[in-house]
């Protein structure tokens, strides 16, 4: 296995602003660390028409991509678990009984993925072009304790950098910039992210990617 290609089934369009970038960058690190024989990580392609709640459109969208990917990344927000767990489980079941042979790896933040964007404060300060964050929100492993990460993002933009988050394109380009800058090592301190990391390693082992 010399190359890795993943497709992403995500919740909504705003996930496309950062998840494919973040996951691709994480996979680059993961492959270098664990599967050095692999020589390429391709762009993570988001399947926008897949929806993500119901398995039927997801499988339909993946059918169109058959043969182009090694792994399916299935993203679903983790909160509240009572609602989220059955949806993820149903998707897993359907995938397992489909005739696809590729592994499906869930990407499940504790509440919302936006929290992952807050993990690296150095990256945030760099993207906002401020010397340091004056009112630092939770970070590292604590970041997922943040109840409303989107509100924190708004606050960061408005109060730390004086940028109006409601203006067209501000949030999107902020997300892209943070995803390109965040240190993957910092992100791995977040338990939900590390969980995905471990699942990913297992999936790649199952596909025959070689360690060392």
């Amino acid at each position: 296995m010399r190359s890795l290609s993943c497709v992403l089934v995500r919740e909504g369009p705003s996930d496309d602003w950062f998840l494919p970038i973040l996951l691709r960058r994480a996979l680059e690190n993961l492959v270098v660390e664990c599967f050095p024989a692999c020589r390429e990580v391709q762009e993570v392609r988001s399947l926008t028409q897949a929806g993500n709640q119901h398995p039927t459109p997801v499988l339909q969208a993946l059918e169109q991509e058959r043969g182009t990917f090694d792994v399916v990344l299935y993203h679903h927000d983790g909160a509240p678990p009572a609602k989220s767990d059955p949806v993820i489980e149903r998707m897993r079941q359907n995938w397992a009984t489909s005739d696809f042979v590729e592994p499906l790896v869930a990407v499940v933040p504790m509440r919302e993925t936006e929290a992952w964007l807050l993990a690296d404060h150095v990256a945030l300060a760099k993207v906002l072009n401020v010397r340091r964050l004056t009112r630092a929100p939770a970070f590292g492993s604590e970041v997922e304790s943040c109840q409303r990460p989107k509100a924190v993002v708004d606050m960061l933009l408005r109060d730390e950098a004086g940028i109006n988050p409601n203006k067209y394109g501000v949030l999107q380009n902020f997300y892209v910039s943070v995803a390109e800058t965040t240190d993957i090592g910092e992100l791995r301190k977040v338990p939900a992210f590390q969980q995905w990391w471990n699942d990913m390693i297992e999936a790649l082992e199952g596909l025959g990617y070689q360690h060392g």
Partner: peptide, 21 residues
């Protein structure tokens, strides 16, 4: 070396698909 481009990817080129949030 790589699989061919599928329609989902071409859609991005066609219209720059991105639904409003």
């Amino acid at each position: 070396r790589w699989p061919r481009i599928t329609d989902s990817e071409l859609d991005r080129f066609r219209a720059g698909v991105e639904e409003a949030v």
